Lab assay of single mutants.
Amino acid sequence: KYFGTAKARYDFCARDRSELSLKEGDIIKILNKKGQQGWWRGEIYGRVGWFPANYVEEDYS
């Protein structure tokens, strides 16, 4: 189950295995919004990890 999707506004390079690298334009499935302050958990291309919420724009459609 996921909470919708978000589109990456910027590139983000994961610093460890718990984080999710993003490329601008990627569409991420949002799995959890209750991580550390400002971090969401998501899935993209079969990978799961945490990413900074301010790097994405949530899709409300």
Rank of each mutant, 00 (worst) to 15 (best):
K1A: 06
K1C: 07
K1S: 10
K1F: 11
Y2S: 13
Y2F: 15
G4K: 09
G4F: 07
G4A: 11
T5V: 11
T5Y: 13
A6K: 03
A8C: 04
R9D: 00
Y10K: 14
Y10W: 12
D11P: 08
D11K: 07
F12R: 07
F12N: 04
C13Q: 15
A14W: 04
R15L: 05
D16I: 02
D16R: 12
R17V: 13
R17F: 08
R17D: 13
S18E: 08
S18I: 02
S18W: 09
E19H: 11
E19D: 04
L20N: 03
L20Q: 00
S21F: 04
S21H: 09
L22R: 02
L22N: 01
L22F: 15
K23M: 10
K23P: 01
K23D: 04
G25M: 03
G25L: 01
D26H: 00
D26Q: 08
D26V: 05
D26F: 00
I27Q: 09
I27P: 05
I28P: 02
L31Q: 05
N32W: 09
N32H: 13
K33D: 03
K34C: 11
K34W: 08
G35I: 07
G35S: 12
G35L: 06
Q36N: 09
Q36Y: 09
Q37Y: 14
W39L: 08
W39K: 10
R41V: 07
G42K: 00
G42P: 01
E43A: 10
E43Q: 13
I44G: 04
I44S: 15
Y45A: 15
Y45T: 13
R47F: 02
R47E: 10
R47T: 08
R47I: 03
G49Q: 01
G49P: 02
W50I: 03
W50G: 03
W50N: 07
W50Y: 10
W50H: 03
F51V: 03
F51Y: 00
F51E: 01
F51G: 01
P52M: 07
P52A: 01
N54E: 14
V56P: 03
E57V: 14
E57R: 11
E57Q: 12
E58G: 07
E58C: 10
E58R: 07
D59G: 12
Y60V: 15
S61G: 10
